[in-house]
Amino acid sequence: MKKLFVLPLAASLAITAIAGSAIGDGHADKALQAAISARQAQMKLISFNTALLGDMAKGAVPYDSATASAAASNLAAVAKLDRSILWLEGSVQGTVDGTRAKPDIWTDAAGFDKAAQGLETAAAAMVSAAGTDLASLQASMKAIGDNCGTCHKAYRGPKN
């Protein structure tokens, strides 16, 4: 008699647990996807502002101190966004679609933080350089590029 109760109870508990975890995963997935799109938007903004500076640096467009200053302060602001809510654990290449974030971001959190701070420092230097003159802008451009490369080398996975 006792067994008769236990069996359906166990089964229903199991079903509840499975359903519950599925719903939980759905929420988690959504949160991970949202964080991925948000940080990709951040990268897009970094790229947009860097392009304005870089095109002047390489002589593709004439130097304009107002545009350069604006781009540099945008870049510095975007580089400083709080990473703790953007780089959610689990939003990693191979587990979630549409991201190239390497697991090292979380396994080597200190290294990732240092790399990200590298861009903050380089962007802050660009804020004072960009409006000064073309030569100063050009001189500060290398540090921006180096920091993008260093971080992407260590923490961004292959495209395909």
């Binding site: 790229s47 947009f48 860097t50 392009a51 870089g54 590029g145 993008c148 490369g149 992407h152």
Partner: peptide
Amino acid sequence: TGFTPDYDSA
């Protein structure tokens, strides 16, 4: 600099 023309980086 490592920047592509679209300002992605290497």
